[in-house]
Every structure is written in structure tokens, then in C-alpha cells.
Amino acid sequence: MTQKSMRDAINEALHLEMERDPRIIVLGEDVSGGAGGTSGNREASGGIFGVTKGLWPKYGDARVIDTPISESAIIGAAAGAALAGLRPVAELMFADFVGVCMDQIYNQAAKFRYMFGGKGSCPVVIRTAMGAGMNMGAQHSQTIYPFITAVPGMKVVIPSNAYDAKGLMITALRGDDPVMFFEHKALYPRKGEVPDGAYTIPFGEAALVREGEHVTVVALARMVVFAEKAIDALAKEGITCDLIDPRTTSPLDEETILESVASTGRLVVIDESPPRCSVAADIAAMVASKGFRSLKAPIVQVTAPHAPVPFARELERAYVPSPARIEQAIREVLKD
């Protein structure tokens, strides 16, 4: 198998599925780039992170659409096209921009199937880049998946590696419900083994990334990478952990988490978002109510502080949960 970056893995999923399904279209700002430019290069961008590269040369204007900076219209048009039989992939350049188009996501796309009494579906995939780590400041660094996870009707995908990203994207493209697909910016260049062909990974099935005895650790996206570091360091001292990556927060694989907690009795949840109404808080509440009798110690949550993402390198580093903080949290949950 070949090593591929998460960027290339998602790109490959788009190529394979567009080839297979002519209903798939891609739209967003600079998904191709170069329209109206003076160089004549009509693929001057391929997406600001390069995820949609090579699609325009293959599929042209009808299926790869560069849009003006109009997020409400991008997401709304995608949802409308989905109602009319297409399978759009809308790129929201940065997850922070949901602020501009939230209505089209949560009042429109998310609710159609239910409000229409099951008649009609809205198979739109909204791809978006999220997360801190590049010093892009308070309006370009957030992990806003808690808001979307809270919306009935939306599926929420948050991959932590290249292999999962490809399989989950193909599942998203073959499903009939709206999906928001969060791509952590810091993970784009990270490589992993990725098969060339198409494969799917079902939603609502967590990955058991590490197996251990003493503590259950749940983490998403980049936090999985940090949790691996912390867990591997502790393994040298004989402390071992289950590391669970839910991969989708809606649907959420409660069973895998509860089963693990039933055997370890201790839970640490890691989340790059601020703590209130976070996915960490959601999972902690789920385990507290459904797995209370398994718990031997209070659940520990490791999150960002309740503050916007700061700009300065040192502050941003302190903001994001680190392997050291995760290690400390695992030690803490083992105290009782």
C-alpha cells in the first residue's frame, strides 16, 4: 500500500466517486481557481488546501464550480441541488465561516427529510477545514463541530487520519443525508497507508486506536494524534489505555465507549473545542448516565479553555490540549 497524506486521500475519494456517480458536483470558493485571472490558468488553486485538485480539468465547469464569496448561497445552492437530484460537495473554506451560512445548514439542509415527512432527501456533503495550530487567529482556527453535532438531521464526520478520511468521505458521498465533514488543517499533510481503490467506513463505528487496561481515552481529529503520544509514553510505565476515535460524532458509537469504560472504569475525554456544550461534555454526560456503575473515578475532560483561539504562537500552543496535558489527565483519573 502507498503512503498518502490526508489531503490526497480525500482528493482521491472525490476523484473516485465523481467518476462513479455523475450526480456529484463540487462547488466553493477557489475549488478550481483562476477564473477571470490574467494567466489563463484555469486551475490556479485546486482548493486553498489543495483538496479539490485535478477535478476541474477532468469534469469542467458543469461539475466543478468556482463560486463568488457567498457562503449562504454556496451551502444553500448545494442543498437545493441535492433536493433536485444532484449530490453536491460544497466546500466551506474554513469551518469558522458557518457563521455566515448557518441557516442553510441547520434550518434548511438538516431539516428537509423530516419536515417533508420523509419525502425527499438532501444528500449534500459540506467539507470544511477546521482547527488551531497554524496561528490563524480567532476567526480561522475554531473546531465548531459541537454546534453541528447538536443539530438533528446532520451527520458529522471528524477524521483523524488519511485512511479514515478517504473511507468516510466515500461513505458520505454515497449516503442520502446531509453530512458536515471536518478536516483538521494540521492533519492535511500527515501521511498514512491508504489503498488506491474505493472503500467505505460506516458512520457510527468508532475505531479502537490503542488497546489497554487502565483507562479509556476518547479523542477526535488531531487530538487522536496527541493522545497516541501521551498513551505511548505512559505505556513505558505500564499504564495502558484504550484509545477510542469515534470518527463520527453524529451518529455516535456509544456502545464502543461504554464497553471500554465497563472494562477500565476510568474515562478521559479530549476535545480541541472549549468545554461548554462540547463533544467532550456530551460524551462525559452519556457515560455518566449510561455507564455510571462502571466508573471508578470522576470523568476527566481535557479541552481548550472557554475563550476564543488566540493568535500568538505561545498562547495558541497553551490553548490547544497538548500530549503533556493529556498524560497528566490520565494520571489524574488513575489517582482515585
Partner: peptide, 22 residues
């Protein structure tokens, strides 16, 4: 140092902020 290039502001000068949202 909390704002950065895209969020420079000085309300006392009537400068209500650069803005990273187009």
C-alpha cells in the same frame, strides 16, 4: 498578541478592527 495581523484594532482611534470574515 491575541489578535494578530487580521484583527488589529484600536477603538480609541475609531479603528473598529481588521476582520478575517469577508
Amino acid at each position: 498578541g491575541k489578535g494578530g495581523s487580521m484583527h488589529i484594532a484600536d477603538v480609541t482611534k475609531g479603528m473598529l478592527g481588521a476582520n478575517a470574515i469577508v
